[in-house]
Amino acid sequence: MSAEINILLVEDEPQIRRVVRSVLEGEGCRVFEAETGQRGLIEAGSRKPDLLIVDLGLPDMDGIELVREFRNWSEAPILILSARTEEQQKVAALDCGADDYLTKPFGVAELLARVRALSRRWGRGGEGSPKATFGDVTVDFSLRAVFRGGEPVHLTNIEYRLLSVLVANPGKVMTRRHLMREVWGPAYSDSGHYLRIYMSRLRQKLERDPAEPEHFLTETGVGYRFEP
């Protein structure tokens, strides 16, 4: 990682803290630790971390609660650590402002990939580019046009809106509810099948192989992620 970044790790298991700390310090990050949610909030206030890593199963408070509190005053990215069967909690944490999650057990490569992606996005800030490119696709926001291999692609209104929400949040896990609200409005937040069908149409039009997507990825039980 280029510049030294401050990471706050809130996790009650010392062995997992040890692994995460050694991996991240090996990459030149400064890692602060907190054992409990309360301690985590205090540390977050004093250390002003650039990235927060939170275990969902904390002994003293719900990890989701911690995410919500932190999100109240900080825009720094949040990475969730959780067990496989906790889909609902993951979704709740993401809806509360978390950016990504990592399922236990995780390897070094997975952890580093997530941390890099999140800190890159944070570092890049909010400068909006009128153009985005992924694979052989170019989205020109100023022209409201999409090209694939130089050829214009026809997208419907909703397809275009969905694409722009996804492209505006590269690497971030977007919950279904969030996407539905952004694209269709609040009234549709229960009709998840719309999202699935439109996502499938986007893949048909923009993916090299729609059956094995590379850019519009499904996070089963949680939502979708756009990988440029």
Partner: peptide, 10 residues
């Protein structure tokens, strides 16, 4: 899962 997570990571 906790020791397994540590084991995988270590």
């Amino acid at each position: 899962r906790t020791p397994l997570t540590a084991l995988v990571g270590l």
